[in-house]
Simulated assay, not measured.
Amino acid sequence: MLRTLRKLSALLAIVFMTLFSSVSVAQEARASGEVRRVDPGAGKITLKHGEIDVLRLPAMTLVYRIDPTLLADLKPGDKVRFVAIRENDEYVVISIQK
C-alpha cells in the first residue's frame, strides 16, 4: 500500500511539473498589421491586426510593449510584420519590420 502511494505521488508530481512548466513557456506569434500609435518614451506601440491564433487574440487594435530602439523608423499608418509574445500577462513585440 505504501509503495502504491509513493508511485502515485511521484506520478502526480510529474503531471504537475509538466502542466506548470508548459504554462510558463512564452508562445511566439508572427503577424502583420498597421501602426496606429508609437510611444518611444513609454516603450509602447499600438497595432491594428487580424486574428492571432497562437496568442488567442481576435482581430483588434492593441497596445504592445516594445523595446524603444525598434521604433526608430516607424510611424502611424505604416504596414508592418511583427513577432509578439505574451509575457507576464502583457503582450510584447520582440521584432518588427515595415
Rank of each mutant, 00 (worst) to 15 (best):
R37P: 05
P58S: 05
T18Y: 08
F20L: 13
R37T: 11
I52F: 05
M60F: 05
R56V: 11
V25H: 05
T18R: 08
K98P: 06
L8R: 15
K48P: 11
L8N: 12
D89P: 10
K44M: 15
L55E: 05
K79G: 03
R36S: 00
D53F: 13
D78F: 00
H49N: 06
A72Q: 10
L8I: 14
I96S: 00
P68Q: 11
T69A: 04
S95M: 02
L47Q: 03
K75V: 05
V54D: 05
I94H: 10
A59I: 11
V15N: 03
K48F: 10
D73A: 08
Y64S: 03
D39Y: 07
I45C: 00
R37E: 09
V38H: 06
I14H: 01
M17H: 09
D67K: 13
M60W: 03
Q27N: 08
L70E: 14
A26K: 14
V92G: 10
E34V: 05
V25K: 07
A26E: 09
E90M: 09
P76C: 02
L47I: 02
V23R: 08
L55H: 11
S9E: 14
S22Y: 07
T18H: 11
A29G: 08
S24Q: 15
A59C: 11
R86E: 14
Y91A: 12
A72Y: 10
I85Y: 00
V63T: 13
E28A: 13
V93P: 07
D53S: 14
R30W: 09
L5E: 15
E34P: 12
L47A: 00
